[in-house]
């Protein structure tokens, strides 16, 4: 298992947060809300498909609604691998950022 790119990490987290309701529109909205950057639908499909190919995500077709013009959703779910890599990433991140706060970053590193 390699390392996750920043985009992949954000998308996996969004899928995790959304639970049973993770599909194109909600993922894009969740990413916009959590990252503070505007995410459009076009930007999420490619990473989603890539993560599915890497077996971090699995997907199935969900129900269709009138709002979607009768088309079904593609619901994404974290796989075991996906959850593992998120856990790994989180622990790695914590050790990288250990004891560092924004103010300590601004002050500079002293020994």
């Amino acid at each position: 298992m390699g390392m996750l790119s920043r985009t992949d990490e954000m998308i996996l987290l969004a899928v995790w947060r959304l639970g049973d309701n993770a599909y194109g529109v909600t993922i894009a909205q969740m990413l916009t809300r959590t990252s503070g950057k505007k995410w459009v639908l076009g930007a999420v499909y490619v990473p989603l498909e890539r993560l599915e190919k890497k077996k971090y995500l699995s997907s199935c077709l969900g129900q269709s609604t009138k709002k979607r013009g009768g088309r079904s959703k593609r619901l994404y779910k974290l796989t075991k691998d996906g959850l593992d890599i998120l856990i790994k990433t989180k622990s790695q991140e914590q050790s990288i950022w250990a004891n560092i706060t924004i103010s300590s970053l601004e002050k500079g590193y002293d020994t």
């Binding site: 599909y23 194109g24 529109v25 639908l41 077709l61 979607r68 088309r71 079904s72 959703k73």
Partner: peptide, 13 residues
């Protein structure tokens, strides 16, 4: 299954 089209239509709605 035109899932992406569905996403876009939902956005539009």
């Amino acid at each position: 299954g035109e899932v992406k089209l569905g996403d876009f239509i939902e956005m539009y709605s």
